[in-house]
């Protein structure tokens, strides 16, 4: 897509606000609408936009496939790890009472940790699926659409 200069400039302008918005949705999920699922998807959209406009090769230089693979499992590990941490310090699985000072404080931190795990997994899964589709050689040219 080298000849679409308007697309290139506009998407370059759009990508930073998209990432900032994704982080806002991630960390404000317990106060307003939002949370790990939505934030992960929005975060992934920023990278997918970059990949669509500048090519998958350019995107995988910013975010190598090895990183995507590790992040995919890291998110699940953070989630399950929160559960096992509670188990190890003598509470039930995923009982947030064990984190921090207990009470609301513990719940806030537990939710933040768990949502972080969800966010990382969803974002890297979406980017990974996009890379898997886009790095196959397409049959079509620009005009065929």
């Amino acid at each position: 897509m080298d000849h679409h200069s308007i697309l290139r400039v506009v998407s370059k302008l759009l990508i930073p606000p998209i990432i900032v918005y994704a982080l806002y949705v991630q960390w404000h999920g317990d106060f307003g609408p939002g949370g790990g699922f939505q934030a992960g998807v929005i975060f992934a959209v920023a990278f997918i936009l970059y990949g669509l406009v500048f090519g998958v090769e350019a995107m995988t230089e910013v975010l190598p496939t090895s990183v995507i693979r590790v992040a995919m499992s890291l998110g699940v590990l953070i989630y399950a790890g929160t559960g096992f941490y509670a188990l190890l310090v003598g509470h039930n699985f995923l009982d947030y009472e064990s984190i921090g000072h207990g009470g609301h404080h513990a719940q806030e931190w537990g939710i933040l940790l768990v949502e972080l795990g969800v966010g990382i997994t969803v974002a890297s899964v979406m980017i990974g699926i996009f890379v898997a589709f886009a790095s196959r050689t397409p049959k079509l040219k620009d005009e065929d659409w």
Binding site: P33, G35, Q107, E108, V114, G117
Partner: peptide, 24 residues
């Protein structure tokens, strides 16, 4: 119990945290 304003997040991540682990 939870102390967060968004009830959906409260149920999703705390009350039914086990389910959400499965979804992930």
């Amino acid at each position: 119990d939870i102390g967060v304003p968004n009830i959906v997040t409260g149920i999703l991540a705390s009350y039914r945290g086990y389910d959400t682990l499965g979804e992930t």
